[in-house]
């Protein structure tokens, strides 16, 4: 009886707050200044008749994330990187990535049916992740989403095969850290790529510049042979995808192997 009363109280509270929210939303609409900013973003996201301001990307969210507000995303990626470094430092000595005793791929893990299904679906998941990531400037999605989808693969393999399967295949935390660093370095390089081109040809250019802007006519190409890449957006999504996939893989390896032997493990 008490549970039902609690539940009724919670539901009535939620309904009350919902009514309040609906009323508030119908009265408090965003100000005119905010609307103008949104109008500017939507008007310039892809606009062939407005070449000096456009991003040439049909996906406004990716354009905002990596072009209009690119610096925020760069710092976000750096914070994720530092968090992983901290995780690795904390787990140091708690896990060892050397194969212990006799590890047999045939006998360890789940049944053959599950293993076969995993082997068939793994390339599909990678294809979906790559499509979400590399089409981030065309359709909803982007580097983080694609990378997180691809990161499901090591997780599934660890669960279905065994914790040491990936390590026997050479997927160690050190190699993933190298891949993660390549991703971050790539993002850093792309962010100054236009600036470097500007330096090389002696023209003025901004850091984190994508398309030509008034006063800075240097820019990356919007398409390669007719295929839209939106300048820096495609490269940012590619490197972010690599970085996120490798980063989540490191996290899983740490989590699954922590406490399973190692030099300082108890």
């Amino acid at each position: 009886m008490r549970r039902i009363t609690e539940l009724a109280v919670i539901i009535s509270l939620i309904l009350g707050v919902s009514v309040l929210l609906v009323l508030a939303a119908s009265i408090l609409i965003p100000g005119v200044e905010v609307r103008q900013l949104a109008f500017f973003y939507l008007y310039t996201t892809i606009n062939p008749w407005f070449q000096n301001y456009t991003v040439n990307s049909p996906e406004a969210v990716t354009a905002i994330v990596w072009d209009y507000r690119g610096l925020d995303t760069l710092f976000e990626t750096s914070v994720f990187y530092l968090a992983l470094i901290a995780g690795l430092a904390l787990a140091r000595g708690l896990f060892s990535e050397t194969l212990q005793g006799s590890f047999n791929e045939k006998t360890s893990g789940l049944s053959t049916i599950v293993k076969t299904v995993t082997r068939v679906t793994a390339p599909m998941i990678i294809a979906v992740g790559a499509s979400i990531g590399l089409h981030g400037h065309l359709t909803p999605g982007g580097g983080f989403q694609g990378g997180a989808t691809i990161a499901v693969i090591p997780l599934v393999f660890i669960v279905v095969y065994s914790a040491f399967f990936l390590i026997a295949r050479g997927v160690t935390s050190n190699k993933m850290l190298v891949l993660r660093s390549i991703g971050l370095l790539g993002i850093g390089f792309i962010s100054i790529a236009t600036f470097l081109i500007g330096l090389a040809i002696g023209r003025f250019a901004y850091v984190f510049q994508n398309m030509p802007k008034p006063g800075a006519i240097v820019g990356l190409p919007a398409d390669i042979n007719g295929a839209l890449i939106s300048g820096t957006l495609w490269f940012f999504n590619l490197f972010e995808m690599i970085a996120v996939a490798a980063g989540f893989t490191i996290a899983f390896i740490i989590l699954l192997l922590a406490g399973r032997g190692g030099s300082g493990g108890r």
């Binding site: 909803p140 999605g141 983080f144 989403q145 997180a148």
Partner: peptide, 19 residues
């Protein structure tokens, strides 16, 4: 907001539950 849905599903349903 399909962009946020993709991030949210991958992280909260997949990775977070596994964690």
């Amino acid at each position: 907001t399909p962009d946020i849905v993709m991030t949210y599903i991958a992280v909260s349903v997949g990775l977070y539950s596994a964690l």
